[in-house]
């Protein structure tokens, strides 16, 4: 029960940290990525996976925002 509650909190925290308004496909991917990261047991691996999610998001937005 505690683990489930913590997992829910982490997922919610991930969505709260997600861009409030962002390119739809990129944001959806970010949300899904945060959700996968939140399921990782190890704190440090979970933290690293969260960073990877943000880098993926930046890659995604870069194509639309900077790609010419």
């Amino acid at each position: 029960m505690v683990k489930k509650t913590l997992l829910t909190l982490v997922v919610l925290a991930g969505f709260a940290a997600a861009p409030r308004a962002a390119i739809a496909g990129c944001t959806t991917s970010l949300g899904e990525c945060y959700e996968r990261a939140a399921r990782i047991d190890s704190f440090w691996y979970r933290w690293a996976a969260g960073i990877d999610c943000e880098l993926d998001y930046a890659d995604c937005v870069r194509r639309r925002l900077i790609g010419r």
């Binding site: 997600a18 861009p19 409030r20 962002a22 999610c53 943000e54 998001y57 930046a58 870069r62 925002l65």
Partner: peptide, 15 residues
């Protein structure tokens, strides 16, 4: 301040 850090990083990309 009003944006999450992933969005901020995207907006700070320079060309």
């Amino acid at each position: 301040p009003s944006l999450a850090r992933a969005s901020v990083a995207a907006l700070n990309m320079v060309t």
